[in-house]
């Protein structure tokens, strides 16, 4: 790792101010992605601003039909939260499958979304549930947030403070783990709103990061059941291919994980 300056922010404004002072600042949340990248010397921030101890950024709130997860809340706390388990069990389940137990203690939802790894789990839930990403400057709809690999609508120095999830009627997540990294080789999150709208989002599959899967959405809108996807064909065009999965294999996984997500949703 290159030498850097570590700052522990006491509040969101303090974090933003410290960020602005650095030559090439980076926010550090759980650090479960940024620190490995820095260890490999693939990132060289002049300053890292630690958000993980900012009290206003930690916690989970449920009010009416919205679950709000503050950005520095670790995955473990989301997975364990009775409120989340009750309101959106699929979201708690997803959080319980991220990385490994040690990663779940440190990694945060805000860090995951800001990084937007194409194989991260949370983006699938955020996109499929139509969540709103709240920052220190504005609120961004999920559909406007993800901009391709490792790229988001966040501006330089903008801090995710919370993510608000509308509570769906039904939702489910199924994931085929990458055998080595334990990211998602392909994961699919499906949701049906109380109004009957269906959305499905896949992570790990596409060359351009998390994506909606219209074919699955249409089939499920007509018939919310795993069997409804039997006749769906997912195109391999534009999907990732590597030694762990060809594009055709990932296309198959989008469908199969979609079916299993629906089964899990009930």
């Amino acid at each position: 790792m290159y030498e850097t300056n570590y700052h522990r922010a006491s509040s969101v404004p303090d974090a933003a101010a410290t960020f602005a002072k650095g030559k090439e600042s980076k926010f550090l949340a759980g650090g479960q992605t940024l620190l490995p990248v820095m260890k490999q010397r693939l990132a060289a921030p002049s300053d890292v601003i630690d958000l993980s101890k900012i009290q206003e950024m930690i916690g989970i709130e449920v009010s009416g039909d919205t679950v709000t997860i503050k950005a520095a809340t670790p995955h473990y706390d989301v997975a364990q939260s009775e409120a989340v388990q009750k309101a959106i069990p699929a979201l708690a389940n997803l959080a319980s499958m991220i990385g490994d137990p040690a990663v779940r203690y440190r990694g945060t939802i805000g860090g995951s979304l800001a990084n937007n790894d194409p194989a991260a789990d949370y983006p699938a839930a955020v996109l499929a549930l139509g969540a709103t990403i709240k920052t220190n400057k504005r609120a961004i709809a999920a559909g406007d947030f993800f901009k391709g690999l490792f790229s988001t609508a966040l501006e330089d120095g903008e801090i995710i403070t919370a993510v608000a999830f509308p509570v769906p009627a039904k939702a489910g997540y199924a994931k085929m783990r990458h055998p080595a990294s334990r990211f998602a080789l392909t994961g699919v999150f499906v949701a049906r709103t109380k109004a009957g709208d269906v959305s499905a989002a896949a992570t790990g599959a596409s060359q351009s990061g998390v994506m909606r899967v219209p074919a699955i959405e249409q089939a499920l809108k007509a018939n919310w059941s795993p069997g409804a996807l039997d006749s769906v064909t997912i195109s391999a065009n534009g999907l990732l291919a590597d030694i762990h999965g060809s594009a055709e294999y990932r296309a198959n996984l989008v469908k199969v994980m979609g079916q299993r997500a629906v089964a899990a949703a009930g």
Binding site: L28, A102, V103
Partner: peptide, 15 residues
């Protein structure tokens, strides 16, 4: 009280 990877945490974070 939580089991974490000490290779993925800056010393400063543990202050």
């Amino acid at each position: 009280g939580r089991a974490v990877k000490s290779c993925t945490m800056l010393a400063g974070q543990a202050a």
